[in-house]
């Protein structure tokens, strides 16, 4: 019996690690990175992509019409900043409309979609969560700083969407899974 439990545990651990690690690179280059919710986390992800040497263009306010298939992967830096939205002169409602159109077009163009949430608890709450949900439903992969998933929202949404979720303890640790996602 003990032996059986051990084997089960071993298999479970194996499965968990395979799940935790994006085993095969799936995303094609170049990437297009945008800020869903206009937070400055966008700047941090640009640094991450630079250092991972992933070619990309960055446009925090890119609209669906601008997607023409030249970028193969859409990186969504998700998290609402009322300051950021204010500075960009865009309402939360308009941002949600932009996001939904962007996701629809990305699906039509068969782009890979990577969700990144790196702002922790400060980028959670009603406004952020409204952006998180549609993005997670459309995503192929998500990378989340654990402090933003304390209530398990990302874990649940990833399970529902049947996508891999990489949980990291800090932003700088998000570089490895992000780089590994690109072919």
């Amino acid at each position: 019996m003990k032996r059986f439990i051990l084997i089960c545990a071993f298999i479970a651990a194996l499965g968990a690690s395979a799940f935790a690690q994006q085993s095969t690179a799936f995303a094609e280059k170049p990437a297009l990175v945008t800020a869903i919710g206009q937070s400055a986390d966008f700047e941090m992800i640009k640094v991450l992509l630079n250092r991972a040497k992933v070619p990309y263009t960055a446009d925090p306010l890119v609209k669906a019409e601008k997607l023409d298939g030249s970028a193969k992967t859409l990186v969504l830096v998700v998290g609402a900043s009322s300051k950021g939205l204010g500075a960009a002169g865009i309402s939360a409602e308009a941002e949600l409309v932009r996001t939904q159109a962007l996701l629809k077009k990305a699906k039509e163009l068969k782009l890979s979609i990577i969700v990144m949430h790196v702002g922790g608890a400060a980028r959670r709450g009603a406004m952020s969560d409204a952006f998180i949900k549609p993005c997670m439903e459309a995503a192929d992969f998500a990378i989340v700083v654990a402090a933003g998933d304390e209530d398990g929202l990302f874990t649940d949404l990833a399970a529902k969407a049947k996508i891999n979720l990489a949980k990291v303890d800090r932003i700088s640790s998000a570089g490895a899974p992000l780089a590994a996602a690109f072919k």
Binding site: E43, K46, G86, A87, R170, I171, S172
Partner: peptide, 25 residues
């Protein structure tokens, strides 16, 4: 802000220090 973002990465990697980032309004 790009210099700031890069510096904040280095702070995490080198010292485990996480600071938030905001641009001036």
């Amino acid at each position: 802000i790009e210099t700031a973002a890069g510096a904040l990465f280095d702070l995490e990697l080198d010292y485990g220090l996480s600071l938030k980032l905001e641009p001036s309004n």
